[in-house]
Amino acid sequence: MARGGQGTQAGEGAAAGSLRHLLSVADLGADGIAEMLRVTDSFVEVSERAIPRVPALRGKTVVSLFFEDSTRTRLSFETAAKRLSADTMTFSASTSSVKKGESLRDTVETITAMGIDAIVVRHGSAGVPWQVARWTDAAVINAGDGWHEHPTQALLDCYTIGQARAGAASDVEKVFAGLRVAIVGDVAHSRVARSNVLAFAALGAEVTLVAPPTLLPPSLAGWPVTVSHDLDAVLPGAEVVYLLRIQRERASEALLPSLREYTAGYGLTRDRSRLLRPDALVMHPGPMNRGVEIAAEVADLPCSVVTRQVANGVAVRMAVLFLLLSHPAQLEPGVAVDG
């Protein structure tokens, strides 16, 4: 799979410690993902402390620049920044000068002029984090750009799979080698799917996309995946079943006859859940449409790790902020966590 929107990093799969921005999973490569997950391990431990706070990023300022509402992702990043003792600011497009016609570039340059260290950007249009990175000297973290990428979601998903299957993420390469992952649903319009395909495949998993043709990207040339339109055939072999959220408007865009027909063919219904392997993991990036892509009872089964995904999100984002913003000399996670 060739990578979209590259060009900000010197070469592919830079060591996570030398990253300037986190725009795409492809910026990391297998080694970078593994390093990120090792650092996440330390921060999971921090999160379990009575006072879950370390001074690693004291004096640093992290701005969340959200042009699209996403309370969950924004709170996750802001919690992560606070646990690292960074100062946080929120710039929400709905309450800002963007409404008064300020251009994207003006907004970015204004925020940069305040002397900040990182911008966490979420935008409904693909590619905006790349544009932001051209207009600022702060580190830029992609918190979701249109249908394109959501790299921290992919990292927290990798971490969650590693945690569930090996107990600790340090064996991540072993966990993922040959792991059979089914990504089910609206791949075409999913930033989560694009980042996860890159991440899972980089770590050695065998990814199958399961969706009706209308919800697959027009071309899968170069994607390291196989495709199926038959969930019942894929489920018995899948070790991870990753369900994507179906936007209700897809039915009105002639992509689906109805949500009911989608559920019948591609939903993880109670009946269909009997096809799951005993050790399968069921994942979902949230928020779930219970009764559409996943039955309520299935979402609450022990094999569902949806809440663990959310919990791990904070630690993963701490790792990302830490690796982007701390001095290279502090890179040993033990040092920073204790310091």
Partner: peptide, 13 residues
Amino acid sequence: HEGEWSSLLGIGG
């Protein structure tokens, strides 16, 4: 253009 690149970049083609 709808094709390989639009699919990768997540832009409508």
